[in-house]
């Protein structure tokens, strides 16, 4: 169960980072940590009983292959989201000269 706990703690650190940080770049890095936490969770679930990778030229019992297979998709999705978010961030900072989410939000409000 300690592995599940490690994964959830990493997940929680990422979540707190997203909430607490003001700089958008640091918020995005925290999103990456959160994603890594979920990956760790899936890997821990797969390896909860046995830890031999399910490549059948060694002898078993093997780790559960399904969570490992599906979570690769999530890593790729994380990468894709992150690169898009970085592009948005770059464009915003080029235009507004700030990366503070507080300031951006105030600017939006001022225009109405």
């Amino acid at each position: 169960m300690i592995y599940i706990a490690i994964a959830v703690v990493i997940f929680a650190i990422g979540g707190i980072g997203i909430i607490w940080k003001d700089n958008i770049l640091l918020k995005l890095l925290s999103l990456g940590i959160m994603n890594a936490g979920v990956v760790a969770l899936f890997v821990s679930i797969a390896g909860l009983k046995y830890r031999i990778p399910a490549i059948l030229n060694t002898s078993g019992p093997y780790a559960d292959p399904l969570p490992q297979a599906v979570i690769i998709t999530s890593i790729v999705i994380g990468f894709a989201t992150m690169s898009l978010a970085l592009v948005f961030t770059m464009l915003i900072s080029l235009k507004k000269g700030t990366l503070s989410s507080k300031k951006l939000q105030e600017d939006i409000d001022r225009e109405h």
Partner: peptide, 9 residues
């Protein structure tokens, strides 16, 4: 495929 992860993937 002997890599079962690839078999799923």
């Amino acid at each position: 495929a002997i890599n079962v992860i690839a078999a799923y993937y």
